[in-house]
Computed example of a mutant assay.
Amino acid sequence: MPTITRIENDLLSIDISSLGAEMQAITTRDGAQWLWNGDAAFWTGRSPVLFPIVGKAPDDTLLIDGKPHAMAQHGFARRREFSLAAASDTLCRYSLQASDETRAVYPFDFLLSVEHSLDGPTLTVAAEIENRGRTAMPFGFGFHPAFAWPLPGAAGKRHVVMLHNAGEPQRQPLEKGLLSQDRTPSPFAAGRLVLSPDLFVDDALVFPEGAGSGLTFQAEGGPALAFRFENLPNLALWTKPGARFLCVEPWHGTAAEYGGSGELKDRPYTTVLAAGAHARFAFTVTFPV
């Protein structure tokens, strides 16, 4: 059975599961719950880590140097048991290393470390990936946290996403779970998107470029969550009809393009990590306390 590690300070408490190094709860000192509760009627995820791919592969089959490997949407890390590598009152680090089981579908030696830490009202979630093999290692990586929508104490208020760069990034629609090669006009106006369930009837909103390195998810006249992204150039927003969450998903890598190559190295924004090298990806979110 997975184990739960709790980190906390005077303002925030975070519960993280060893299964997928996935957050299970974010609680402020007033008892408010800011993370989606994983209601199985809609979606059991809460904050999965996406590795070694983001999104889908054609027919759930990934090509690596021309050889097919079965790979489910968003990769396998979210379904693996991680080991607790470090823990203190305000920090925990879980790690996943390559095994015979992972090499059967992803033939590389890696170490994936996911660290959650607190500093006042700010949570930082950082991932470091090390290539422990002797050849270059391609992969995609992303975060997929689901936050309460409406935000605590903000029922009935209009919710918006505000891009800190005031951008109007084009959307790249999904076609059978893969990225269409078309682009559609931005739903943002001067960096502002008014949220509505209707936006997500055709799946997630994916913005491969132009969303910038930060945003605010807020209720007008109510609470706000401020995000900053590190080495995460792609953004997706997602919910399911009838559910009460909004996923704010910063990525480095996307689904394969519909009608495009099935090769991992050819997927948009794939990272190719040299032997012995490291890559870091992180986001911070600051809570109103």
Rank of each mutant, 00 (worst) to 15 (best):
G276K: 04
L232I: 10
L237H: 12
A219P: 04
H144V: 11
D182A: 10
D119R: 13
W251L: 00
T124I: 01
S17A: 09
A279F: 03
W238S: 10
T284S: 10
G31Y: 02
F227Q: 13
A277H: 13
G177I: 07
G177D: 09
F108R: 01
E128Y: 05
A85V: 09
A189E: 12
S47G: 15
G55I: 03
D65L: 05
G75D: 05
R78Y: 15
D203S: 07
W149P: 03
D10K: 06
A32F: 01
L50H: 07
A226Y: 09
R228N: 13
D109Y: 14
L273A: 04
P268E: 07
Q170V: 09
I26N: 13
L112H: 11
G75A: 00
N234A: 14
T27A: 12
W238M: 09
F281N: 12
T90K: 11
A70P: 14
H69I: 09
F245T: 10
P169Y: 09
G222T: 04
G253W: 07
G260C: 03
G214I: 03
F283H: 14
I14D: 00
L193S: 02
T28P: 02
P241L: 05
A243H: 11
F110G: 06
F51K: 03
A226H: 12
P288D: 08
T216C: 13
C247N: 10
E257Y: 02
T3K: 12
V49T: 14
N165H: 07
I7W: 02
P150R: 02
T184K: 11
A86T: 08
F139N: 03
L118T: 02
W34R: 01
G177E: 07
S88I: 04
L225H: 04
P169H: 05
P48T: 15
G142E: 03
F283G: 09
T284I: 04
F245C: 14
T286M: 06
H278R: 15
G259W: 13
A256W: 08
R244G: 01
S83I: 10
R29M: 06
A70T: 15
W34P: 09
H74Q: 04
I53M: 02
F82K: 11
G153V: 11
G221I: 05
T184C: 07
S95I: 05
P150S: 00
A274F: 14
R171T: 01
E175L: 08
P169M: 06
F139C: 05
A126R: 13
N37I: 13
V125I: 15
F200P: 05
L96Y: 13
G120Y: 03
K240M: 09
L179M: 08
A204E: 10
T284E: 10
A224Q: 06
